[in-house]
């Protein structure tokens, strides 16, 4: 019993000290230093904005080797919030997100191509039960020690999505065929 325990412990510590080329960060959704916002044109006259209030995720990032970056995010789609309950009910209903059937959305990155500002993060987005490849334009905002003994890195990103591609066909008009996601992601290094 004891031998098994020590063996397990040894294995665990070996794994945890295994060399990592990128540091692992947990997205600070707890402290809400991260947000997933969206905007969509209203009839071509203005931007309607809102956000998903609840999500969790983690990413790996190393300034020395940015190409190895990766990210995983899980979004609670029921937390959709456009600051208007009747609209939220409509959007969460079966004409749009159908959250009773598809309460979770996930994003898993597949590749990161660095460029001068940051890079392009490609990955698979699962939304409304459909999985599609999307590309996130990423800008690095900054990284460094925080005042409380931790270390943080943060990025912003934008995504263009076409709800129709995911199977949401409700007609909001020609100006509203694209939804833009504005992402602000701060992670705390583990």
């Amino acid at each position: 019993m004891k031998a098994k325990f020590i063996k397990g412990l040894a294995l665990a510590s070996a794994l945890s000290v295994a060399p990592t080329y990128a540091a692992d960060y947990v997205i600070d959704s707890k402290g809400a230093h991260a947000s997933i916002q969206f905007r969509i044109s209203h009839l071509g006259t203005s931007w309607l904005t809102g956000r998903f209030n609840t999500f969790t995720g983690a990413f790996s990032y190393d300034a020395e080797n940015p190409a190895a970056s990766s990210v995983n995010v899980e979004v609670d789609v029921t937390s959709f919030d456009s600051n208007h309950a009747e609209r939220d009910k409509h959007i969460k209903g079966d004409e749009f997100l159908d959250v009773s059937k598809f309460p979770k959305a996930t994003f898993k990155s597949t590749s990161f191509t660095p460029n001068e500002e940051g890079g392009v993060m490609k990955g698979m987005l699962t939304l409304y039960g459909q999985t599609k490849e999307i590309a996130i334009d990423v800008q690095k905002v900054g990284e460094g020690k925080d005042p409380w003994g931790g270390y943080r890195a943060g990025f912003s990103g934008t995504v263009e999505l076409t709800p129709k591609d995911f199977g949401m066909t409700y007609n909001l008009g020609p100006a509203a065929e694209t939804v833009y996601l504005d992402l602000n992601i701060e992670g705390i290094r583990q």
């Binding site: 029921t78 009747e86 009910k89 969460k92 209903g93 959250v99």
Partner: peptide
């Protein structure tokens, strides 16, 4: 939470 959906 989700008052509009549950009430709906």
């Amino acid at each position: 939470d989700n008052q509009e959906d549950i009430a709906g």
